[in-house]
Every structure is written in C-alpha cells, then in structure tokens.
C-alpha cells in the first residue's frame, strides 16, 4: 500500500479563553499529524481540551496561536466561502448531542448538506435513502428526531456526516449520550466506515470501547499531549489493565 498522506496536521496549536480576568488555557501547544484513512481516538479526562482540539481541527474555532492544516492547506488562510466548503465537503461532524435539526425529518437532515453542495432533489433523496440504509434506518426516513431513540438519532447523524463523502469524520464523544450496547453499535459502524470507505475517523472520547478499534490513541492531559500509542502498544496496555473486551 502506498504511503498515506497527512490529511490533518496540527502545529503548535494553543487556545486560551479569557473570561473577564480569568484566563483558561484549554490547549497549550499541541502537535499532531494524522494520516489519511487512520482511525484516531483522542482520550483524556474531562476538561483536558478534547473538544477544543476537535473544534480546531474542524475549523469551528481558531487557535490563539499555531496552525491547523487540512490536506496541507492552512485553514486560517481560508475565507468564509472556502471554510463553508470545507465544512460541507471535506469534513463530516458528529456530536455528543447528535445535533439533528429538529424541524426536519431524518431524510431531510441527511440531504441538507447535499443541497448545500448543489445536488438536485432527486440525487439527494436517492443518496440520502442509501445512507440511511447503511445505518439501518431506511424505513425511518420520514421520522423527526424526537421520534427516534438516542442511538437512532446518532445513526442519522452519522449518515448525515457521510452526505458529501467527506475525507474526514470528526466525532466529539459520539457515544457519550448512549448506553453500552448502543455505543458499541455506533463504534462498530464508525470502524466499518473507516475500513470500508477509507474515511479518516478522528474521535474525542471517554469511552474505553473506542480503544479496541483505534489505530492510534492520543492521550491529552491539561491541554497537552501526554502520550500517543500505536495499535500494537495498545493491545498490551489495555490488555494489561484488563479493560479489553472479547
């Protein structure tokens, strides 16, 4: 297999939040390179800066210093249109709180990014149904989010994140609001997408079940990278503390 290119590169990214006189350093200089097709988990205690890093990589927030490159393009250099394009085509977002648009049906939620991308109604509907089928919810396409369970909503969100075949899926605690079994289903689904479609999956999580499917795990503590573990090392550590299932 050819050497995969660096799809995401984070260089010296720091982010401070100033609230009145109080300064919170959410990130204190993070360097990270992520290869295309990788399944990467970002682990760390609450408040360690996972979501902040997620927002930086996703172009949802700007670093106080340092740079984020997507496909070696510095996203700070992008104008509003290009940034919208990036969010629309290049990255699929999945959130802990699902964030489906409540007034729209499952299908409309999935097709919205395609509409933004200029797809025709028919194209969008066809692909939308196909994606809902992929996550096992084709029959529920006419249902609104409040008529779906948490796990089902998250599956719709995953289908939506795939709408414009993004190169990257960014997930911030995708299993955070789900029970064990449902969480596992979501993880399996993400892993399948990563291996079958070659999508780069970057996921911030508390969930130790994520470790089993990750190619690499980045441990964050107090806004810094604590350690980065490869798949091979992981088996040992995780096995060692007996957290590994099956």
């Amino acid at each position: 297999m050819a050497e995969a290119h660096n799809i995401v590169r984070v260089a010296g990214v720091a982010r401070t939040f100033t609230m009145g006189t109080q300064v919170v350093q959410a990130l204190r200089g993070v360097d990270l390179t992520i290869k295309a097709g990788e399944y990467l988990s970002i682990m760390g205690p609450s408040g360690s800066g996972k979501s902040t890093l997620f927002n930086m990589i996703g172009g949802l927030d700007k670093p106080s210093s340092g740079k984020v490159f997507i496909d070696e393009v510095d996203i700070a250099q992008l104008d509003a249109y290009e940034l919208a394009w990036l969010r629309n085509r290049k990255i699929g977002y999945i959130f802990q709180t699902f964030n489906l648009i409540q007034v729209m049906t499952a299908l409309e939620n999935v097709t919205l990014p395609m509409t933004f991308a200029g797809a025709s109604q028919d194209e969008a509907t066809e692909k939308g149904l196909e994606l809902l089928g992929l996550v096992g919810l084709r029959e529920r396409h006419a249902h609104r989010p409040q008529e779906l369970s948490g796990g089902q909503q998250q599956r719709v969100a995953i289908a939506r994140s795939l709408a414009n075949t993004p190169a990257i899926i960014l997930a911030d605690e995708p299993t955070g609001n789900l029970d064990l079994t449902t969480g596992e289903e979501i993880i399996t689904l993400l892993k399948r997408l990563s291996s079958e479609r070659g999508v780069t999956v970057i996921s911030a999580t508390h969930d130790y079940k994520m470790l089993n499917v990750s190619d690499r795990v980045v441990w964050i503590r107090d806004g810094r990278i604590d350690k980065i573990e490869e798949r091979s090392e992981l088996d040992i550590t995780v096995g060692g503390i007996g957290a590994r299932e099956a």
Binding site: A84, Q102, L112, P113, F116, R160
Partner: peptide
C-alpha cells in the same frame, strides 16, 4: 440549529 447548519456548510 443555526450552529448545526453552519457546520454543515451554510453561509
């Protein structure tokens, strides 16, 4: 809803 739309690429 507005934030979500923007994440999906809305201008």
């Amino acid at each position: 809803e507005i934030g979500t739309m923007k994440c999906l690429g809305a201008l």
